[in-house]
Structure formats: structure tokens, C-alpha cells
């Protein structure tokens, strides 16, 4: 009787909702896993095309997450610590990649590189359209928007006082940020990188439109799933999907573990 009195209706309800959602995700994964078999997984991993796609996905996602962090730290800091005219507009523009359908981002990139400025960039630096660089750029546009949000939240939660004290002790603003604020923001930086990494791993629409789906060239894991499905190889598509689940889980668990250890 005492036990039942201690159970609150409020917490029970929250528990039920959480459990239902977690079970739903597990059921989805379990149903997908049941559709495949270890043989299919091994066969998929044995394929040259799929191995290339795994390597390219891991490489581009890692590179993209680093680039996203490089952009997200200064922008997140600026938004969190300063007030300026047009700030709301800037914040809205930065959120556009989050609200636009990913396919549209790909289309925008494709059209931008048809313009005079886009042509000039490609001619004077590197060709992006239908290349691996295009894969990274397409992942970056969306990943960076999420990383910026994460870094802004991180800096919002860090008091500016320690930084200001550092300035009175002899630092310039830049040094104070480097010596005091950034070391305190490392958990946020890790979170921003992992969010960008995870988003990039699942990115499909903009890569398909902007970088194409050329086998062994611009083929990343979501492209492989789509290519395999389009020729009726459902088992291979499922095996690759499970690989993606595995990679995503491995990265997220490692990042969380690192976050707790350091």
C-alpha cells in the first residue's frame, strides 16, 4: 500500500510516454534487423562499392563536422555575447538550412554554382558540383546550422564574468575567450561536432541533387541505400541501413563516453 502511495500519477505518465517512444524506436530497428541476416551484412561489406561508400561517408562526415565547428564557434559566440542591429534577421537566416527541405538546399547549391560568382569560385578554387567536395559542402550547409545552434546555446549558458575578469588581469578579449571560455565550452563543442556528424551521415537529398549519385565517386551511405533499393536489392539496402545505425550509435556513444571521462 505504501509503495502505491509513493508512485505519483505525474511521473508514471511521463514514464509511460518515454517507454512507449523508446520501444517504438527499438521495434523499428528490430524489424529492420530481422529483415537482414549476418550473411547479407558480410556480403554487403564485401562489395567494393559499399566499402567505398562507407569510407567516403566516414571521411566526409568527419571533415564536415570539423568545418562546422570552425564556423559554429565564432558565430555562436557572436550571437550569444553581442547585441547588434538586425540580429533577429541574422538568426533567422542562419536557421534557414534547418527549416528548408534538404532537397531544396541541394537545388540552391546547384543553381548558385551556375551563377557568375559560383563559376568564379569553382574556376579559382575547386570544382564542387558533382564531386566529393560537393558532398562535403552539401553536408556542411545543413550540419553547420545545427552546430551553430548548439554552440550558441553553450555560450548562452556560460557566464561572461570569468572572461571579463581575465580581461582585467591582462588578456585581450580574444585571449580571454581562448584561455577561459573555450576550455569551459568543450562539452558544447563536442556536442556540436557530434550533431553535425550525425546530420551529415544521414544527409541524402542535397547530396543527390548537388553532388550526384555516381558509384565509387560521390556515393555515400544514404546514396547506396537509395541505389540498392532502386534496383530491387532490398536486402543490401537494409544491410547498409543497419551499418549506418551502427556507425551513428558508435559515434554518439563514444562522444558521450568521452564527455563523461574528460
Amino acid at each position: 500500500m505504501r509503495f502505491w502511495r509513493r508512485i505519483s500519477v505525474f511521473w508514471t505518465l511521463l514514464g509511460i510516454i518515454t517507454a512507449a517512444y523508446v520501444v517504438f524506436i527499438i521495434l523499428l530497428l528490430q524489424a529492420t534487423a530481422a529483415y537482414s541476416s549476418p550473411e547479407h551484412m558480410l556480403k554487403a561489406l564485401d562489395s567494393r562499392e559499399i566499402r567505398h561508400s562507407v569510407n567516403l561517408s566516414l571521411l566526409t562526415c568527419s571533415l564536415t563536422s570539423l568545418l562546422c565547428l570552425l564556423v559554429a564557434v565564432p558565430i555562436g559566440y557572436l550571437l550569444a555575447r553581442s547585441r547588434f542591429w538586425g540580429k533577429n534577421l541574422v538568426e533567422s537566416i542562419l536557421d534557414i538550412p534547418i527549416v528548408l527541405p534538404p532537397m531544396v538546399i541541394g537545388l540552391c547549391l546547384l543553381i548558385f554554382f551556375q551563377t557568375a560568382l559560383g563559376n568564379w569560385i569553382e574556376e579559382s578554387t575547386q570544382r564542387f558540383t558533382y564531386t566529393v567536395y560537393g558532398v562535403v559542402l552539401a553536408q556542411f550547409v545543413i550540419g553547420a546550422a545545427f552546430a551553430i545552434r548548439t554552440m550558441r546555446g553553450t555560450f548562452d549558458h556560460l557566464s561572461s564574468r570569468p572572461e571579463e575578469v581575465a580581461m582585467t588581469l591582462g588578456c585581450s578579449r580574444g585571449w580571454a575567450v581562448c584561455l577561459v571560455t573555450l576550455p569551459a565550452a568543450w562539452r558544447g563543442m563536442l556536442a556540436a561536432m557530434s550533431v553535425a556528424w550525425a546530420r551529415s551521415l544521414g544527409e541524402f537529398g542535397p547530396i543527390l541533387v548537388f553532388a550526384g549519385a555516381a558509384r565509387m565517386k560521390t556515393e555515400v551511405l544514404p546514396t547506396t541505400v537509395w541505389l540498392e533499393m532502386s534496383v530491387g536489392n532490398l536486402e543490401e539496402a537494409v544491410a547498409v541501413s543497419l551499418l549506418m545505425v551502427f556507425f551513428a550509435m558508435a559515434v554518439l556513444v563514444t562522444v558521450r563516453w568521452l564527455g563523461e571521462r574528460i
Binding site: 564574468r161 575578469v165 591582462g170 584561455l179
Partner: peptide, 20 residues
């Protein structure tokens, strides 16, 4: 700039550097 004013500042909650 604050760095060149030659003063010591102690804020309300100490504002210690969190990672040092």
C-alpha cells in the same frame, strides 16, 4: 582596455575560471 588599467576585480560570485 581593462588589461592596461592596473586593477584587481572581484565579482559577486568570484567568477572563477571553471576549468583551472
Amino acid at each position: 582596455p581593462p588589461a592596461r588599467r592596473g586593477l584587481g576585480y572581484v565579482p559577486q560570485d568570484g567568477a572563477l575560471f571553471p576549468t583551472m
